[in-house]
């Protein structure tokens, strides 16, 4: 637990020290929210959720890339792979919440008659999915340009795809839109249930995929035999 919390803490410290990045992480969802503000509030909230998801995914992608050279050293220093990816994920989830909280306040002040619990749940789902999603892209595509382009493609597809289409369920942030629809349009509870289940399943799948990718990269190699000191 000590090792896991230390990695989480250092991930947070690194991100907090990059003030410009933090500012941009806040600016991105704000821009998404404001650009649709003159229209129906539901569109603004959905765009805001995608903005939060994109911001956290991008932070996760770059954090994973930056840690790539350091992780082998930490592995040799006594860390197990799960300390490294879970610790980093924990730090990113905390940062995601820090980003989401002011926007929840903004929606609460700027709108009327929404199911605010639903808005909060949708934000939680966006953050929960975004951290492992960005980390997975960072773990699979070591070059940041490729990773950023893939992230851009996924988020754009997510934004343009009709959520009612069957294929939309395969996109990572479909849950946010479902829960947002429940929160904004006061639809029946099946939207909320579907959304939460989707978020839990996608987060679990992504965490497993990150675990697989990081564990494979930092695995103990078969050619090394470890003997006790004689």
């Amino acid at each position: 637990m000590h090792r896991l919390s230390t990695v989480a803490e250092m991930t947070l410290r690194e991100l907090v020290r990059r003030r410009g990045v933090l500012l941009l992480l806040l600016l991105m969802p704000l821009a998404f929210y404001l650009i649709r503000r003159d229209a129906y509030i539901g569109q603004s909230v959905r765009a805001l959720l995608l903005g939060i998801a994109w911001a956290v995914s991008t932070a996760a992608l770059f954090t994973t890339g930056a840690a790539r050279d350091l992780e082998p050293r930490l592995r040799l220093a006594g860390y197990r792979p799960h300390h490294l990816y879970l610790g980093r994920m924990l730090g990113l989830w905390v940062i995601g919440l820090v980003i989401a909280v002011p926007f929840f306040g903004l929606v609460a002040v700027d709108s009327d008659g929404l199911r605010y619990g639903g808005v909060a749940a949708a934000m939680l789902c966006a953050v929960a999915v975004a951290a492992p999603f960005g980390m997975l892209i960072g773990a699979v595509l070591p070059r940041e340009l490729e990773g950023t382009l893939l992230l851009l493609t996924v988020v754009t597809v997510q934004m343009l795809l009709d959520p009612a289409e069957a294929g939309a369920r395969l996109t990572p942030f479909w849950s946010c839109r479902e829960i947002a629809t429940w929160a904004v349009d006061h639809t029946d509870d099946s939207y909320l249930t579907r959304g939460v289940l989707h978020a839990v399943a996608v987060t679990a799948l992504l965490v497993l995929a990150v675990a697989g990718a990081v564990s494979a990269r930092l695995r103990r190699r078969r050619h090394v035999r470890q003997l006790p000191v004689t």
Partner: peptide, 17 residues
């Protein structure tokens, strides 16, 4: 290997921030 090992890479191995 018989013992704990540490490795100092030529580049990298530290966190910028």
């Amino acid at each position: 290997l018989a013992g704990r090992l540490a490795y100092c890479p030529q580049q990298g191995g530290t966190a910028d921030f």
